[in-house]
Design a binder for these strands. Structure first.
Lengths: 339, 339
DNA sequence: CTGAAAGCGCTTACAG
DNA sequence: CTGAAAGCGCTTACAG
């Protein structure tokens, strides 16, 4: 008892005699004593650990994940929480495994970009507090952090239009995902507000990775040889935009003098191209920070018995980041070259 | 007892009567029973968790880390181990904290690119098995995974020389680090074997990040205005090479027709530039895989009382990855422009 | 085949 | 101010 009190310092009122205290400290030092985390966790019923679940594939090392994760690590460390990572291969199949992780080894869970279905929502852990970042659907009694992607897309496309662009392509992420559809909606809204219709609007599904961006643009160009190129391409994310840059470089179309190109997210990838990408910033790092704060609040609440039943969406604003890949359109139309 | 035996299945010989077994399973199902990980850890004296320690700064989101980490996660998951991450701000100051993490919450620790000093080596956890990846110095009784960086550098520079390059710059990482010095050594060896001396050899310290690469080349050019540009630049890593591409694009020097450029590591960054970077591949993902395997062996050994006292270095080979940024030098010398 | 008991290493009322 | 005791939820000999 005395040992526990002394060693935990502030935790309990230290009402130990100085001499006893000294002896305890001395012995602890001498023995290189370290309290055992598992035993403490068992007694206190808390691990001081939060879990992060994400799909993490070798093939698509994920800039997006890295930024959010970094924010999570930062805030977790500030609160003396350690972070453990659970990798899934596939949200559809693996969301059942989530429940297994919630076996006392973590106090709460943040799900990064989960792709949930109605069934998998039912399988979500119920005893362990959790929050989502960019979840693809609303979950009852859940907090989800998202950003105003529609607005971001709208702002970017409007900016392109103001520069004089008319014929604009949108290379989308995997259709059906909430965030993807929001970007499509923003794109369409900006186009139609400017009176630009069908013939100027090209929507092609790509994905979220650089190879997918490369493929999508290349395939479209193959199929459209001899037609007019778009004057600008608004991409699903920075990775896709990078893929586009490769295609364009290969065929000798220059960015931004011949064609404008914009990304989304503002990940490290946006600063790794030459010229650097004009993009829509989502505050991913801050969202990671916030996810942990919210989660910690929920953990605290559930400990005090007041389970927070209010579902809420926390919406972050997006921001245009103007760099080197968007410029006024060239005076002459460019024709899709033979590939 | 019976419950434990049944639920753990293979673990103990299941010698339970079918009827008892059925009842147990049924009850477990009905109650949605989940064994408590902390209690199990306490009883079994193992967490089935490995720790990963790395410096993880907001400012320099680290491609290198991401690749190694991904390999670690993969192998850990295969062995049903969870992975927890400890972030340090600074190896020098924080290596004392490492010891605190080793309080029973992890069974072993992998240190990613630790920058150790003699003092911090002494403070390294002794009871918890650990391995290093790219450690900067040899630690007694330790396993360190590294790659043949000298050879990688040598091969790349030799390749440049064979293409006809004579005046070659090496933009180094932070001087003093083992890996950095090895690359410098490989560079120098290739140069001197080819009979290229001082006047053709330009060594400038940069760092490991894109902004540092940008700064270093730009500063050098500022100070060298009117002199001859190098015909090729061999960079400390892919991030630095990306920084160089930015500078060169700004001043209108084309890669690779005017100047050749090579990176190191073959991270995602090497595939995000246009044209893609010619680089030296280190098998980072595989090194992450292997680190976990070795660590798990050591954990097992230490459990069986046979502490493995043999220090060993596991050396992976490097490999030239020829992409788009290295070509024969131009016929005319290029002069450093005024910046 | 089954169950009572001790122990893993802590924390937290509680009685002195 | 101090220490004996119970309990956190498991596993593992051990005796029946």
């Amino acid at each position: 008892m005395a040992v526990s009190a002394v060693l935990n310092g502030a935790r309990t009122s230290s009402r130990t005699a100085p001499e006893t205290r000294r002896r305890i400290l001395e012995a602890a030092e001498k023995l290189r004593y370290r309290p055992n985390a598992a035993a403490r966790a068992l007694a206190e019923r808390r691990m001081n650990t939060i879990g992060v679940a994400a799909v993490f594939e070798r093939s698509q090392l994920n800039q997006y994940f890295l930024e959010v994760f970094n924010g999570i690590l930062e805030t977790a460390a500030q609160h003396d929480q350690t972070t453990t990572v659970f990798t899934l291969h596939d949200w559809e199949k693996d969301s059942a495994r989530l429940d297994k992780f919630c076996d006392g080894r973590i106090d709460g869970l943040v799900l990064i970009a989960p792709r949930l279905t109605k069934e998998s929502v039912a399988a979500l852990p119920t005893h362990t507090p959790s929050v989502g970042v960019h979840a693809n659907l609303a979950v009852p009694r859940w907090v989800n952090l998202e950003s105003d992607e529609e607005r971001g897309a709208y702002d970017m496309v409007k900016y392109m239009i103001e520069l004089g662009h008319r014929r604009i392509m949108h290379l989308t992420g995997p259709r059906g995902l909430l965030g993807v559809e929001r970007r499509v909606t923003g794109f369409k809204r900006a186009m139609s507000e400017a009176g630009l219709r069908r013939e100027n609007t090209i929507i092609v599904e790509a994905g979220f990775t650089t190879p997918e961006g490369y493929r999508a643009l290349r395939d479209w160009m193959k199929a459209s040889s001899g037609q007019k190129m778009p004057q600008a391409i608004f991409c699903a994310n920075d990775g896709v935009a990078t893929g586009c840059m490769e295609v364009l470089a290969e065929v000798g179309i220059r960015v931004p003098s011949d064609i404008s190109l914009a990304g989304f997210d503002d990940t490290l990838a946006a600063r790794s191209t030459v010229p650097q990408l004009t993009t829509v910033r989502q505050p991913l790092h801050e969202m990671g920070n916030r996810a942990v704060e919210v989660l910690l609040e929920r953990i605290e609440a559930s400990r005090e018995g007041k389970i927070d039943r209010a579902a809420q969406n926390i919406v972050f604003s997006t921001e245009l980041v103007l760099r080197g890949t968007v410029a006024p359109p060239p005076s002459q139309e460019i024709v899709v070259p033979q590939i």
